[in-house]
């Protein structure tokens, strides 16, 4: 069985609809192996599609992940008697266009910094996130155990809901809550300790 396009190109290759339809139908029945093959199979196609929408680098990968999450959360809307590719392409287009609209709005509100905005040559001056409280917080988060760090990143930094984070990490919502609770406790100790126990 073909798992989908094997190479990443700027032009999305024609997806093998029949195979993907079968894999999705099995995924809807709870067959994890088929569902994994489907998601792995559609990922290069989604990358190519995102590339056509002008995305690249980390932004492109974020967009692909966003589409994969959407596919997962609305997989019950796929009708197994219909071809899979139009459904997938429609979902991807919706999400990619949403992302582009957000980007255009963001660009419209932003003013690019020029040399005149730089105060001192030191890196910390122009990148405050690397210095001061923010820098310490970043270092403290980086020092957390893997599970706690991921939970903080998803729930606090990326502001994902418990449900989304649970789907993305495969952990239960309760486990995520516990991880975040422990992480915050640990961060308090780390940051408080550096301030002389305050």
């Amino acid at each position: 069985m073909n798992d989908g396009p094997k190479t990443e190109t700027a032009q999305p290759t024609r997806p093998p609809e029949a195979d993907w339809s079968v894999l999705m139908a099995r995924g809807q029945q709870g067959d994890a192996a088929s569902y994994r093959r489907l998601l792995q199979g559609i990922t290069p196609y989604l990358r190519a599609l995102a590339h056509r929408f002008g995305l690249s680098g980390p932004d492109l990968e974020d967009a692909v992940q966003d589409v994969l999450l959407t596919v997962h959360s609305i997989r019950h809307t796929y009708d197994p008697t219909r071809p899979f590719a139009p459904w997938l392409t429609a979902v991807a287009r919706h999400r990619l266009l949403d992302r582009l609209r957000r980007r255009v709005r963001q660009i419209g509100r932003e003013t690019e910094l020029t040399e005149a905005h730089e105060t001192f040559a030191a890196v910390e001056t122009n990148h405050p996130e690397l210095a001061g409280e923010a820098g310490r917080l970043k270092a403290a988060i980086a020092s957390l155990p893997e599970g706690q760090r991921r939970a903080v990143e998803m729930l606090k930094l990326k502001e994902m809901s418990l449900k989304e984070a649970s789907q993305a990490s495969g952990q239960s919502e309760t486990a995520l809550k516990v991880s975040v609770h422990r992480a915050i406790k640990r961060l308090r100790v780390l940051l408080g300790g550096a301030q002389g126990g305050q």
Binding site: R36, L39, A168
Partner: peptide
């Protein structure tokens, strides 16, 4: 993908 398929 691993996370999405783990507890499908």
């Amino acid at each position: 993908i691993e996370g999405l398929t783990r507890n499908l």
